[in-house]
Amino acid sequence: MKQEKSTIESRIKAFFTAYEKRYADALAGSIDVEATAAAFAEEFIEANPFGVHAGRNDEELRKVIPKGMEFYREIGTKSMEVGNLSITTLDPLHYLAKVHWRATYRQKDKDDLLIEFDVIYFLQDIGQKLKIFAYITGDERGVMKEHGLID
């Protein structure tokens, strides 16, 4: 089932707009755990400079989501916005989305801090539902340490 390029690009943009909004809502204290979990496939892969990790979309994920958002609030995260989005069609059901995130952090006794970074997401489109089945990140904790957000 091949989709027109503009249709799938619109759907992927809407997917990340909703992802960004859920992040903003969570930073404001309203975490939609189910909608956040629904963005992921039943099983998914994370790759970062420290290795590759497999995850399941299960109750454990639903327990981790609020803890993760609490961590971001505690370190002063004010916003997480999509700065740019590029989409590559891999085949009629699979897409690569490179998201350039712009994160703003509140710093004690300093101006707000902007950190920009890219995350590469692999999406699958089954039954007109986009799901993240893999993503690649950089050394997020290292950047946070470098800027004094965490020890």
Rank of each mutant, 00 (worst) to 15 (best):
K98D: 14
N84T: 02
Y72D: 06
N84I: 03
T89P: 02
M80N: 15
F71R: 14
A97F: 11
I75V: 13
L85D: 07
H94V: 00
I87T: 10
K78P: 00
T104R: 13
M69D: 05
D112M: 01
K110L: 14
L114R: 14
L113I: 02
H100V: 03
R73E: 01
E70P: 00
T104A: 07
Y105D: 06
I87G: 12
T89Y: 08
S79D: 03
R106K: 05
K78L: 02
H100C: 03
D91M: 03
K110P: 08
L96T: 10
R73N: 08
W101V: 01
P92T: 13
R73Y: 02
D91A: 02
I115Q: 15
T77Y: 09
A103K: 12
K78S: 05
T89I: 04
T89R: 07
G68N: 14
L113F: 05
G68K: 09
E70C: 04
E74M: 03
I87W: 10
H100M: 06
M80W: 11
E70D: 05
G76Y: 05
F71E: 06
Q107L: 10
R106C: 00
L114W: 00
K108I: 01
L90D: 11
E70H: 02
L93T: 05
D109A: 11
Y105G: 07
K98T: 14
E81N: 13
T88V: 07
H94W: 06
Q107S: 05
K98E: 14
K98S: 15
L113M: 04
Y95F: 15
K110Y: 07
E70V: 01
L114N: 04
H100N: 10
K110F: 08
G68M: 07
R106P: 01
R73C: 01
G83E: 09
D91F: 04
V99Q: 12
S86N: 15
P92M: 00
Y95R: 04
I87A: 06
H100L: 10
R73L: 06
Y72V: 00
D111H: 12
G83R: 08
L96W: 07
V99R: 12
H94L: 09
E70M: 04
D112F: 11
D111F: 09
A97K: 08
L96H: 11
D91V: 01
L114F: 04
I115L: 15
V99I: 15
A97V: 09
R106I: 10
I75M: 09
D91C: 01
I87V: 15
Y105H: 09
S79L: 06
H100A: 14
D91G: 05
M80A: 15
P92Y: 07
G83F: 04
S86I: 05
Y95T: 09
D112L: 01
M80C: 15
P92E: 13
F71I: 05
L113P: 02
I87K: 06
V82F: 06
G83W: 10
D109V: 00
P92C: 00
E74W: 08
Y72N: 00
G68P: 04
F71L: 03
M80D: 14
L85K: 03
T88K: 14
Y72G: 04
L114K: 07
I115D: 14
V82S: 06
Y105I: 02
L85R: 09
A97W: 11
N84G: 10
G83Y: 12
L113E: 03
D109W: 08
T89G: 01
I115C: 15
L90F: 15
S86E: 13
K98F: 03
